[in-house]
């Protein structure tokens, strides 16, 4: 499944970059994240509680940051496995300066899901992932103001 979109942060690009590279802030922003720990250079391990329609469960997995060009762009790769299936995806994030001290984030990527989460939850996955991304980005934007 393809994921694509953009979001405008009310803050300068450097500041936005700083918060998306901070695992503690990121952990609070990703809905359902139970933990997110830096385990190596640009590699995080974490657990996330996900509910997609009738399917709910904890996914444990890795988040890897690569192709990092600070404070402009990076690639995120996610791999998660849980009792309700697996998900695997990667996406590119690009930040651009906008007028009036704001920053535009463009993201695009692809996610593959399998197991129960695919066979029973697929119909809702698109809507759920969009809403999770929106919530997460909203949280990050709030963090900018602190």
């Amino acid at each position: 499944m393809k994921i694509e979109g953009e979001y405008t942060f009310t803050g300068p690009r450097e500041k936005v970059w700083e918060i998306i590279r901070d695992p503690e802030i990121l952990a609070t922003a990703l809905p359902g994240t139970k933990k997110l720990e830096l385990v190596g250079e640009n590699e995080y391990e974490g657990e996330m509680q996900v509910r997609i329609g009738p399917v709910a469960g904890v996914f444990g997995g890795k988040l890897i940051v690569s192709n990092e060009v600070a404070p402009e762009s990076l690639t995120l790769t996610v791999e998660g496995v849980g009792k309700v299936g697996f998900l695997k995806g990667s996406g590119d994030i690009v930040l651009r300066d906008q007028d009036g001290n704001s920053t535009l984030m463009k993201y695009s990527g692809e996610v593959q899901i399998g197991g129960k989460v695919a066979s029973v939850g697929q119909r809702l996955f698109d809507a759920v992932s969009k809403s999770m991304i929106r919530q997460g980005l909203g949280k990050l934007n709030e963090a900018l103001r602190v």
């Binding site: 593959q112 899901i113 399998g114 695919a118 066979s119 029973v120 697929q122 119909r123």
Partner: peptide, 14 residues
Amino acid sequence: WDENGQLLNASLAD
């Protein structure tokens, strides 16, 4: 089936 061989409608809801 998706391109990864996952059945996307394995319930009588879908």
